[in-house]
Amino acid sequence: MSTAAAVEEPRQVARKFLARPQHEGVGAVVRRSIGRFELRYFDPFLVLDEFSVSAPAGFPDHPHRGFETVTYMLEGAVTHEDFEGHRGTIKAGDVQWMTAGRGIVHSEMPAGPGTSRGLQLWVNLSSQNKMIEPGYQEFQSKDIATTTSPDGGVTVRVIAGQAMGARSPVSTRTPTLYLDFTVRARAAAPARQPVPPSWNAFVYVLEGEAWFGAGAAAEKVGAHHLALLGQGGDGVEVWNRSDDRPLRFLLVAGEPIGEPVAQLGPFVMNTEEEIDATVNDFECFVNGFEKARHWKSQAMMALDDVE
Rank of each mutant, 00 (worst) to 15 (best):
R31T: 04
D243A: 14
H23L: 08
V203T: 15
A191T: 10
A55Q: 07
Q96P: 11
E108D: 11
T89K: 07
A210I: 12
E24Y: 04
E9M: 13
E307M: 08
R65G: 02
G35W: 00
E290S: 09
E8P: 10
L119C: 11
G101H: 05
A292F: 05
V221G: 04
K16R: 13
K291T: 08
Y41E: 09
V205K: 01
F67A: 02
G208F: 00
T69A: 13
V154R: 05
G112Q: 11
F181K: 01
G58Y: 00
A185S: 13
H62P: 06
V7L: 14
D281K: 10
V183Q: 03
A302K: 10
D49R: 00
P110I: 11
S168D: 04
L18C: 03
A262H: 01
W211G: 09
F17K: 03
D180L: 00
L46E: 09
T115H: 11
A277K: 12
R20C: 01
G66D: 04
Q12H: 11
S2V: 09
Q137I: 13
T3W: 08
F289A: 07
V279P: 06
A217R: 10
A262W: 03
N280F: 08
A188Q: 14
G254L: 05
A262G: 04
R102Y: 06
A111D: 14
A163K: 03
P110W: 06
W122N: 13
G213V: 07
D281T: 11
R117V: 13
R248S: 00
V195K: 15
L250P: 00
E24G: 03
E283L: 14
S127E: 15
A187Q: 03
E138F: 13
L179A: 05
L206R: 12
D234I: 05
G235K: 04
D234Q: 12
F285T: 09
H64C: 06
A216D: 14
A14V: 08
M269G: 01
P197G: 10
R11Q: 09
F181C: 01
M301Q: 12
N200Q: 15
V123N: 02
T172E: 12
A55G: 05
I34W: 00
G233Q: 07
P56V: 00
A166V: 13
T182C: 05
I275D: 01
R173Q: 15
Q193V: 02
E237K: 15
A292C: 10
P56S: 01
A57M: 04
I144S: 08
S116H: 08
R87Q: 15
R184T: 13
V95I: 15
A216I: 07
T115Q: 14
R157L: 06
T115Y: 04
V26K: 06
L121P: 02
A292G: 10
Q96T: 10
R241Y: 02
D143Q: 15
E9K: 14
S171P: 02
Q120H: 06
M98F: 09
R186C: 10
V13C: 10
Q231L: 13
E272R: 06
V30S: 03
W97S: 14
F202Q: 07
G58M: 01
D276L: 12
V195E: 14
D43N: 14
K296R: 12
W211V: 15
G288N: 03
Q96R: 11
I90Q: 03
V47Y: 00
N200G: 15
T146V: 13
D143V: 12
N287G: 05
Y41Q: 10
V236R: 06
A187F: 05
